[in-house]
Amino acid sequence: MSGGVRGDSDKHSAATVTVRIQAEDFDIASEIAALAEGRADIGAVATFTGLCRDEGGRLSSLELEHYPGMAERAIRTIANEAAKRFALTGITAIHRYGKIAPGCNIVLVVATAPHRQAAFDGASFLMDYLKTEAPFWKKEHRKGGGAGEWVSAKDSDDRAKARWDKR
């Protein structure tokens, strides 16, 4: 699954929803261009990119494990919900797996809408749900060799998701 092939998109009340789980890196500009192509109703594009941190120089890489099948399905459910809730014109979510070095990309969300608040909210909503519902796990690899710990889930991620319930 790489550039140019868009067979994995769903139409959701005129929103283009694209979800990809891949080992390869992604290109933000081309993902934005793909969402904007042929449309004149987009007034706002919000993107979020999550990168691998080195945690103060401790890490040589993060290893991302995922549950194939369920990972794409879970993110697609969230993306469809975001498209509907914020009346987005499009949303793209790409999550990488495998070993990722500090400074490299892990996840991308692009949300497009007629106005900025919906685009911001759509991207933010998707990330907050993805953190706690998409079946991915991170393991630290330390500098100087040796596997470190599995990253623990944070309560703050649960709270970030919960804030969408109140609206």
Binding site: A134, F136, W150, A153
Partner: peptide, 10 residues
């Protein structure tokens, strides 16, 4: 059936 720890993606 899948069994796993709390997820840490993103």
């Amino acid at each position: 059936i899948a069994l796993f720890p709390p997820m840490t993606g993103g």
